[in-house]
């Protein structure tokens, strides 16, 4: 955890990685409503790694299917191993055992399946934040 420890209400500094801008905007709005601070948004794995290094968020909310050379799982693994930062995955593949197995290797603090609705993001975030506090 960085200089800014999550507060009493489990607030965290979050980096959103999602290449669909409308979804990214919606997530940012929801996270702010939950009292979190959105410190940055990235739309590719490479950009996510750069921002994670620079901003040192408490948590990275990562879309698994990113366009480009690197997908969300690759980026999460790098972010985890280089900066020791946890990721929470967001994915539109429900039952794809290949990506689930790979995703597990990045030791995510949560997994959210698209499309998700308000209460799902809220509860997954709560569980993730509780893990950060430990």
């Amino acid at each position: 955890m960085t200089h800014q420890k999550p507060g009493d209400f489990g607030q965290a500094r979050i980096l959103i990685v999602e290449d669909e801008s409308i979804i990214a905007m919606d997530i940012a709005m929801q996270l702010r409503e939950l009292g979190h601070q959105v410190v940055g948004q990235a739309s590719s794995g490479e950009q996510a790694i750069n921002l994670a290094q620079r901003l040192r968020p408490d948590l990275v909310l990562m879309d698994v299917q990113l366009k480009g050379v690197m997908d969300g799982i690759d980026a999460a693994q790098t972010i985890r191993s280089r900066f020791n930062l946890p990721c929470l995955f967001l994915s539109a593949f429900a039952n794809d055992s290949d990506s689930l197995t790979r995703a597990a290797l990045a030791a995510p603090v949560g997994y959210l399946s698209k499309p998700f609705f308000d209460h799902e993001l809220r509860s997954v975030m709560e569980i993730a934040i509780r893990q950060l506090d430990q």
């Binding site: 905007m25 919606d26 539109a92």
Partner: peptide, 21 residues
Amino acid sequence: LKEVHHRVKNNLQVIASLLRM
């Protein structure tokens, strides 16, 4: 098929996000 499934769900997410906002 995997790609189509991904797109369907992603598009449903875009619609849900728009309605929510």
